[in-house]
Amino acid sequence: MLAERKATPEPAPEAGATWSMTLEGNPDAVRDGLRDLFSCELLSGLTEDSRGSVEIVVAEVLNNVVEHAYAQYTGKIDLRITRHPAFLAVKVADAGLPMPGGELPGSKLADVSDLPEGGFGWFLIRTLTQDLSYRRDGERNLLSLSIGVDNIP
């Protein structure tokens, strides 16, 4: 499942440190991939709040690929995260179905009093990220975004 993994050995990674992995497009592989990301050194030195944001965003992005891009067939997901002083740059690629209409879904949240059971994913991603962009490159979906992070002082 973990086809590739690179991480810097230092406890506090320098800017430009990159972690990447290729995982299978299914929910169990996403869970294992997140555990792996959170046990590596790339995220060390981030505040608990920032680590939480990273976990939410990465989980939602990967879940979307599994549920939608790979709704009819499955394949692999490439995830690449680069550490910068105040943000993480995240790139996700898959070989699944394109986004409907070739664009990212909106982020409108349903009225909570209607007790919605879904529609939270893109809202969370848009709330916690900047520089969100999507493009179709041949048979692949390429998503990139950045997550602002705080380092433990």
Partner: peptide, 16 residues
């Protein structure tokens, strides 16, 4: 826990 609380808060489901 903090990350769970954050998901409830951001989605406003903490009010439900």
């Amino acid at each position: 826990t903090p990350t769970v609380e954050k998901v409830f808060r951001l989605t406003r489901m903490d009010s439900v």
